[in-house]
Design a protein around this nucleic acid. Sequence first.
DNA 1: TGCCGTATGTGCGATAACGCACATAATTGT
DNA 2: ACAATTATGTGCGTTATCGCACATACGGCA
Lengths: 240, 240
Amino acid sequence: MVAAVSAQKTPMQNHLLALLPQEIFERIATHLELVSMPLGEALYEPGGQLHYAYFPTTSIVSLHYVMENGASAEIAGVGNDGVVGVALFMGGNTTPSQATVCAGGYGYRIKARLMMEEFNRAGPMMRLMLRYTQALITQMSQTAVCNRHHSMEQQMCRWLLFTLDRSASHELVMTQELIAGMLGVRREGITETAGNLQRAGLISYRRGHITALDRPGLESRTCECYSVVKKEFQRLLSDV
Amino acid sequence: MVAAVSAQKTPMQNHLLALLPQEIFERIATHLELVSMPLGEALYEPGGQLHYAYFPTTSIVSLHYVMENGASAEIAGVGNDGVVGVALFMGGNTTPSQATVCAGGYGYRIKARLMMEEFNRAGPMMRLMLRYTQALITQMSQTAVCNRHHSMEQQMCRWLLFTLDRSASHELVMTQELIAGMLGVRREGITETAGNLQRAGLISYRRGHITALDRPGLESRTCECYSVVKKEFQRLLSDV
DNA sequence: TGCCGTATGTGCGATAACGCACATAATTGT
DNA sequence: ACAATTATGTGCGTTATCGCACATACGGCA
């Protein structure tokens, strides 16, 4: 049984890898290493060199910035729809932000040098990575706008929806404390908002778990930011 | 006299163009068209196709998102240190955000097709544009973080400092209303904050003009976001 | 089964920024 | 010189979120 589950794991679970032309996918696949990505693992630290690019399959990674006073805020999330480490091929090879796993799971990684070799062919891999980076830019932009103008409830709904999109099930294994850290708000604020959403029948939760009961309801309570980003990902990253 | 000033205009005033190897600069220069970029001009609308890439010299451009309800927020600014229209070479050729001139001046533009031709050589131009895009990503990220955690005064100081950096003089031609729009806050809030900064001797202003009197003072009142972004621009975009 | 660390619930007062309604002052154009 | 327009100043009640101090309750593990 364990072996059977294990056999289901494939790099194709990552949408970006799945979009590569077969020839390139096969060339790359040899170098893709399946890795477990447990909750809390740091994929890179601020200012640290990137040794790998990561393609999450069942895990979700948060790109965030930690301030001098310890407060933090998420800049963007990356799941099976993306790749962690765009600074690798954009140049500079590091960023002031950091990447940590916020939902444990699996993913594939490839050595920085091998990734660069394929990128530098200036073919489909490069074009795909650049389009993804453009989608990431939209996500970051919308995070900035959302942080400025929208309520905590709207932001929490947005965050839940994105995280659910990157998740196989309707249940997220996630504490309120962690969500608060991502959104850069107080834990108590999340407790209150989650209570409201549960009373409204949109979610249900127990210690460390959140289950979505009514996705359309969540969508109606979030801001336009969710659909703006979602549509942009579809536009930029549908195969053609 | 007018002719003499006009003769001083050169694409080299844009730091990115100045970083290009001479051979490429010369190839490009033929296609660079000097354009006046008056306050308020829209370089592109959300969802609209990009027909040119713009390299500001004395103008400053704001990338911002306008929400359904009309509220807006700046995502990043671009001056003589950058280029407007990265979506051109990243793929997709449009964005949900828009670009408008927030400080009138001049710049050079190049037709999208010609820009792509040079980019697609996958040489120094491509590498420079990607490094710039990485710097832009840092700026956007930090905007998101700053919007979340920092006070209006910190944010206004940050904005003034960036704008001064992209400006030849210590005086900005700029209304408080415009600054409020950039930061996505109330105009009255800017009036109050500007009053505080003036009383503290850091700036002085009159109807439509702001003069910086004490840069170190402004730097001491802003948040870490200013220096994080500034250092990242230096790291990524100093010639080597 | 019971204990203990961790997660969640709740109730304050404090505060920064908001929304609105104006008053005043500086330019522009005639 | 004057009116019209645009920019800035000010006051005041409202609100969302914060910061802190706890109370409570779940659930893994001895």
